[in-house]
Design a protein around this nucleic acid. Sequence first.
DNA 1: ATGATGCTTAGCCATGTCGCTAACTATCAT
DNA 2: ATGATAGTTAGCGACATGGCTAAGCATCAT
Lengths: 113, 113
Amino acid sequence: MAKHHPELSLLFHALADTTRRSILARLAEGPARVTDLSEPTGLRLPTVMRHLSVLEEAGLIATSKDGRVRTCAIVPEALEPARTWLDEQRAVWESRLDRLEAFAIKAAKERAK
Amino acid sequence: MAKHHPELSLLFHALADTTRRSILARLAEGPARVTDLSEPTGLRLPTVMRHLSVLEEAGLIATSKDGRVRTCAIVPEALEPARTWLDEQRAVWESRLDRLEAFAIKAAKERAK
DNA sequence: ATGATGCTTAGCCATGTCGCTAACTATCAT
DNA sequence: ATGATAGTTAGCGACATGGCTAAGCATCAT
């Protein structure tokens, strides 16, 4: 049952951090330099660098260096695996709603005790 | 720009682990006892318990105890915040494709050097 | 009432994460 | 060639994570 999806783990892990999500939000407005990402977050450069490497390993951003300036940009397709997984799960989970309801009744009974 | 979404962090973090995703896959087939989840994963009970509490805190599962048996079941709506966030991002990211392409050209130039 | 069963708690170990500072390298401007 | 600027590397500290064992508690069957 699709037990090993390291890419999904990388992806979800990268998204599971408010700082990284706000970096992505900033990059959604357009490419930015590392320093541009450091200022609004109030974080030091090395800290930002680490977040960027997590995002890059997850495939969520791409970076390139021109002179001494590194520019970061979003990779929109990177979200697809997550989206696909969520859709698949939703499909399966909802098709089991009958059983879920049976469980909910049991749970309610338990809660009432 | 929606900087603080602790629920999203909990959610993505819960999903960022293959063991937890396979527990969810198992639960997608219907509610199960803790022991039922322990056997296929090959993990010890306390380990499974910890994963379950992570999943429960993220709102992804609900559990109830009847006698000495705890039953776990999926909470389908729990995926919605993640799905919504992904959809929003995709919308924004894709609307910036023009800028992205400009960046891609620059990146290609850099890669070639 | 005894033992088996199912879960729970406490606590250990190795490793990973997230922030930092300090020091280094590389580039650009003068 | 000097200094400012942009990024990078190394390494620290506090804490979280993911696995385990051992021991405890509660319930069910006999």
